[in-house]
Design a protein around this nucleic acid. Structure first.
Lengths: 213, 213
DNA sequence: ACCTGAACACCGTTCAAGT
DNA sequence: ACCTGAACACCGTTCAAGT
């Protein structure tokens, strides 16, 4: 059941590199299963049969480990992604792939804000989006504003929807169930419907923003 | 300079209620000055000349104190708000007022995700928005989706923009400065320009979403 | 090179004791 | 009623010591 156990780790890695990778994957596993509060160096050590201070052989700090996990998820997403030809489709694909990645790893969403660094994979995607906006002939004086609106929407709403993981769906379900509103209460019949509504809302909003260009 | 010191506290409150209120206001002060990491019960106690365990006289836990601070900010915002007649203007006003509140208290933005409860003030605003959407004759089958899209955009992008407070502007400025993109680097000339771009992006996105209705 | 073990400062929280 | 002080479990982090 542990994703870390099933991921094929290239045999050509040194022991240190293998341990480092295992720590990153274990961190993501814990994040998904228990949420950000459950992620401690103690817990990572236990799952790997190591002392909690062993992490410092491979990372300068807990934050560096989190940054490593973020970079791991983004580079994995970046490699698997195939971008369509038309600029609007390219932006949409990146946004949906990122959403899908955090949907698979909701516990990692809360991490995104914590990690302040810029990673190679995310800045590569940034360049693709900026190029696509120029291909759509967005005026250069509006470019920074439009780019920021898209980034804040895509990352922000995903962050918000998945915060509180792994109980985010149940939390929102209860809130809607208690709202007293007919339509909201109908979607609150199950977490599956909450999830479906969240995803439909995301794509609706994304299309609305792209339509406005 | 401390907002807690200048806020007029009604004299009719009991000592316990005054202490409770002071703790909430001090928590918000610390959040704005030092960010979420700087907020400890120790720190609150020190500013009030109390022992750190005194908080438990007034709140069941640290999380309850955070929920109290959130409720404090929202109810304050709710009381001061004057809503326009037209439904679209009402939604827009609520969104912009909330943005303004978090712009004044960026450190509190990170708290929003932590606090999972529903407060009276926020559910009151929820009802206003749902009514406005119905006044705009949004189909009942789309209502939950549209509401969720608006909520996730408004809260999520605000959350994202202000996360990392109190250094959020400088962090984004550095990221844009290092992007290598002409337009992004131009906005990275100062944190004031970053701030202006963020706010312009928020209103642009909000209008795009409301236009799509 | 990689990891352990002890130690440190700092958390949130509990509870008996003070006034 | 309101607060203190000691105590507890648990953090992240440092560093000398082991192999």
């Amino acid at each position: 059941m542990s994703r870390a156990a099933t991921t094929d780790t290239p045999a050509r890695l040194t022991k240190g590199e293998r341990t480092r990778l295992a720590m990153v994957e274990t961190a993501i596993d814990i994040l998904d299963e228990e949420g950000p509060d459950g992620l401690t160096l103690q817990g990572i050590g236990e799952r790997l049969g190591l002392h909690r201070t062993a992490v410092y052989r491979h990372f300068a700090s807990r934050d560096e480990l989190l940054a490593g996990a973020m970079e791991y998820l983004f580079s994995q997403m970046y490699e698997q992604m195939t971008l369509p030809q038309d600029p609007r489709g390219r932006i949409s694909a990146i946004a949906l792939e990122m959403r899908r990645m955090f949907h698979r790893h909701p516990g990692a969403a809360a991490m995104f804000v914590t990690v302040g660094e810029e990673w190679t994979s995310s800045s590569a995607l940034e360049r693709v989006i900026l190029q696509a906006l120029r291909d759509m002939s967005v005026d250069e004086k509006d470019l920074a504003t439009v780019y920021q609106a898209l980034e804040s929407y895509v990352v922000g709403s995903t962050l918000f929807d998945f915060s509180g993981a792994p109980h985010h769906l149940e939390m929102r379900r209860r809130r809607h169930a208690a709202s007293g509103d007919q339509s909201l209460m109908r979607t609150a019949s199950s977490t599956a419907r909450i999830d479906a509504t969240n995803e439909a809302a995301f794509t609706w909003g994304l299309d609305a923003l792209l339509d406005a260009l």
